[in-house]
Design a protein around this nucleic acid. Structure first.
Lengths: 126, 126
DNA sequence: CAGAATCCAAGCCGATACTG
DNA sequence: CAGTATCGGCTTGGATTCTG
């Protein structure tokens, strides 16, 4: 975890929060606010390793994008869910997605439907 | 330049367009639509090398975020400026900045002013 | 002036194995 | 179940030199 305020640049901070290879996938997965367990996330994000998953979750929790709830049962159960800040961020990500979607339609005739698309929803815009 | 449509995921595409270490600095610099010459950009972005600048400009031009105009004088003059698509993207970046700014204020009492902040403007929001 | 070519360092990420 | 430890490759970016 690097310096918390990234030289006091808010845009750079935001980019660092959602940067990296797997953060968007995780945020997308938790988009409807329901709790997700560690291994469930791992199964739902194909290709992610334990190292990257644990690291990404820790970073997102550190920044308050998601919350971690641990239940000391046997075996232990841990649930992650998006915070209010995460939900706000999600809204911005939807706009970035819509911009990209518009961009793709402008520059080609490809259909906009994307099977493995992050943040995909039934409508183009919410 | 990797695959143009990034597995057809518009959000990933957008992130790739503005990803990397220097793209945001360059976009920010051209924010008011005025033309900038290569060496002027280089002087205005401290620490950037020729390799990274040329690479970033080429990528941003490839994605239609900025346009490149070459004047065959001696010596040659090249001007870069944001396109309409770049201006739209800039608007989204402002929102990301505002989110980060709000985030920073929520989590600390630091003043929000940031000397080297990207996309900095006189008001917090436009 | 506006870049391109080359080489090198650092850090991100993957694979595998292990643990409370 | 929910992680951590370790090693190694590969990508990203930096430094330097060179050119139309």
């Amino acid at each position: 975890m690097d310096s918390f305020f990234h030289d006091l640049c808010p845009l750079r901070l935001t980019m660092d929060i959602i940067g990296g290879k797997w953060k968007l996938n995780i945020i997308c997965l938790l988009k409807d606010g329901t709790p997700w367990r560690y291994n469930a996330i791992k199964r739902a994000v194909p290709g992610i390793t334990n190292v990257m998953l644990a690291q990404s979750l820790k970073s997102l929790e550190h920044y308050g994008i998601l919350s971690r709830q641990q239940y000391n049962e046997v075996p232990v159960r841990v649930e992650y869910r998006l915070t209010a800040a995460g939900m706000e961020l999600l809204e911005l990500l939807r706009q970035l997605r819509d911009w990209g979607n518009q961009y793709m339609q402008d520059f080609s005739n490809l259909e906009s439907h994307c099977p493995q698309c992050l943040l995909q929803e039934s409508e183009t815009s919410r």
